[in-house]
């Protein structure tokens, strides 16, 4: 029982990472009908941006210029890194995807893969192969309920992710921009004719997705404080799998499937050697798509932004 509950806690944490990243895949798909294959590496970029911002803020405190409490540093890091990374996302859209909007979709997929490689290699070239460690912003406190250990880091991770998902929901539902996004997801051809600026919406979608990925990167850094340039590949592909399982273009589905994937992986690790995690995660996507080609929440051909 304890093992089970412990696994639930771990699954929630991993699910948070997957869900936050999967949201970005799904939003871009629903609005532009393409997979942003560079998204996993944007997660990596976000983690690094978070690393630099937080290191700088911690440095300010150490040199006595501006001593901030750790929780404020974390909040500022999340906000600043999200904003900076969203610019990276918009840049990727502008340079890599906008010129290809009328090209075959395979070209866009290929471009995404290539941008991902550029981001990885660029990071390697700029910062070297050395792994970097994320500063400790939360002094780990461990709580114990009924034999299950929960760290405050895990609580923060899950809470922040859920808060962000609710915020995204509200944004898409309530604001003018959110409505424009939903409209574009509904009809790519007509809506641009109705005065909705397609380029702005595309940039906004990439920006939002990248911001969420950046937050996921920072939260990842809190839990596993070692960063390296290729960290985005596997996590990114798994989040992609979650986005597919959720149903392409379904934001709610992507979030839920992210958590589902977290659960599957953690419980697989209970039964099998942990090296089987990837194997089973990717096998499941093949099996599920065989029997439910549109995922859990998706529809054939339509890619509505539903939440």
């Amino acid at each position: 029982m304890n093992v089970f509950l412990q696994s639930v806690v771990n699954a929630l944490q991993w699910g948070s990472f997957y869900a936050l990243i999967a949201l970005g895949y799904s939003m871009v798909y629903s609005v532009l009908m393409l997979f942003n294959f560079a998204h996993g590496d944007i997660f990596m970029v976000g983690a690094y941006v978070g690393l630099f911002v937080s290191t700088a803020l911690v440095g300010l405190g150490a040199s006595g210029v501006l001593a901030l409490p750790n929780w404020l540093i974390l909040v500022l890091t999340i906000i600043l890194a999200a904003i900076l990374t969203s610019f990276v996302g918009m840049l990727v859209e502008r340079v890599g995807y906008r010129p290809l909007r009328k090209a075959p979709r395979a070209s866009a997929a290929l471009t995404g893969l290539m941008i991902g490689i550029i981001l990885q290699t660029g990071n390697l070239a700029l910062l070297g192969a050395r792994r970097r460690s994320f500063p400790t912003l939360i002094e780990t406190t461990t709580f114990e309920f009924a034999g299950v250990t929960v760290t405050n880091t895990k609580i923060v991770i899950v809470l922040v992710s859920i808060l962000l998902m609710i915020a995204l929901h509200q944004f898409v539902r309530r604001t003018k921009w959110g409505m424009a996004m939903r409209a574009m997801a509904y009809d790519f051809v007509v809506v641009p004719l109705m005065g909705v600026p397609i380029n702005t919406i595309a940039a906004l979608t990439f920006g939002l997705g990248s911001a969420l990925a950046a937050v996921a990167g920072i939260l990842f850094g809190l839990a596993y404080p070692v960063l390296e340039p290729y960290m985005g590949i596997l996590v990114g592909w798994k989040a992609f799998v979650a986005a597919i399982l959720g149903g392409r273009g379904s934001v709610l589905g992507a979030g839920l499937a992210g958590f589902l994937l977290g659960f599957i992986e953690i419980f697989v690790a209970l039964l099998f050697p942990s090296t089987f995690r990837d194997l089973i995660a990717f096998s499941i996507v093949i099996v599920i798509l065989t029997f439910r080609p549109h995922g859990f929440f998706g529809e054939a051909y339509s890619a509505r932004l539903r939440l």
């Binding site: 997979f35 592909w237 096998s283």
Partner: peptide, 22 residues
């Protein structure tokens, strides 16, 4: 019909790699 091949083939590639590693 649809772009299933891209997704499933990608998953397949990662499965094969992971399988051999194990």
């Amino acid at each position: 019909r649809g772009d299933y091949l891209a997704i499933i083939s990608l998953a397949f590639m990662l499965v094969v790699k992971s399988l051999i590693e194990n």
